[in-house]
């Protein structure tokens, strides 16, 4: 084995690391726009899925333009509101992309994005994103509300790494379907959110859905996420609903 001087070792490492760093930064710079676009498309698709649109996303050959087209067609308006229900000058999409940092702020200081859906000038539906922490990692979702801003029209949830077959079931239809038709406010107009009930929800109770057997922590985390994220919209929801 040849021996190398210490100087050689230092110079060799320095050169190697510099080359690697330069190459990687170059690649990262080149690919960044494409990667960010992927994330935007995914968010748009999620918003559309909560109102039952973009169902052909996996069949079309050019998914990106399909999603962009659908999003442009159905999402007619979007804005950001604050805790007091006032509109804030900000882009709803950008706020949604950074929602994970937004929900760490106190409820009163957060910005709340709203996406308005309407098909052929029909009744409006309002889509709001929710974010939270599951058992193993982040969970998130999108909740679409009817024009009364009380009844849930549809909900989609997803997760990064919940337990397959247990917590991961939050991304399946059997779990999400029962959310439709449930209401967020009780008869007195008090915000009660949706309760995820272990051992079977009472079907006549408008604020309950079934939890997942064996997925209690994820179910509870989801309940907390929905409550935490929707509570801040209360002022806004009431204002719109009374108008």
């Amino acid at each position: 084995m040849r021996s190398f001087s210490n100087t050689y070792i230092f110079v060799f490492s320095l050169v190697l690391v510099t080359i690697v760093a330069v190459l990687l930064s170059f690649v990262s710079m080149k690919l960044k726009p494409i990667q960010e676009m992927n994330i935007r498309i995914e968010r748009k698709q999620d918003v559309l899925r909560s109102v039952g649109k973009a169902e052909k996303a996996d069949e079309v050959s050019d998914k990106n333009s399909y999603i962009n087209e659908e999003f442009g067609k159905y999402i007619t308006d979007s804005y950001v509101v604050n805790f007091r229900g006032e509109k804030v000058d900000a882009d709803a999409f950008e706020v949604m992309l950074a929602l994970n940092t937004e929900i760490r702020k106190p409820q009163e200081e957060r910005n709340y994005p709203v996406f308005v859906y309407s098909e052929n000038g029909g009744a409006k539906k309002y889509v709001v994103p929710v974010r939270g922490k599951g058992l193993w990692g982040p969970i998130w979702g999108y909740i679409a509300l009817e024009a009364d801003l009380n009844t849930i029209y549809g909900a989609v949830f997803d997760h990064q790494g919940e337990t397959p077959g247990l917590g991961a079931e939050i991304s399946t239809a059997w779990f999400q379907k029962p959310f439709a038709g449930k209401t967020l406010f009780d008869d007195n107009g008090t915000f009660v959110s949706i309760e995820v009930v272990k051992g079977g929800a009472d079907p006549s109770n408008p604020h309950q859905v079934d939890a997942i057997s064996g997925g209690t922590i994820t179910s509870k985390a989801l309940e907390a996420m929905v409550k935490n994220c929707l509570a801040g919209y209360e002022a806004y929801f009431k204002e719109i609903a009374t108008n």
Partner: peptide
């Protein structure tokens, strides 16, 4: 690995 990861994120999201 970082290279492959970046490429996958861009082209096979």
């Amino acid at each position: 690995v970082i290279l492959v990861d970046q490429v996958l994120k861009a082209y096979a999201y």
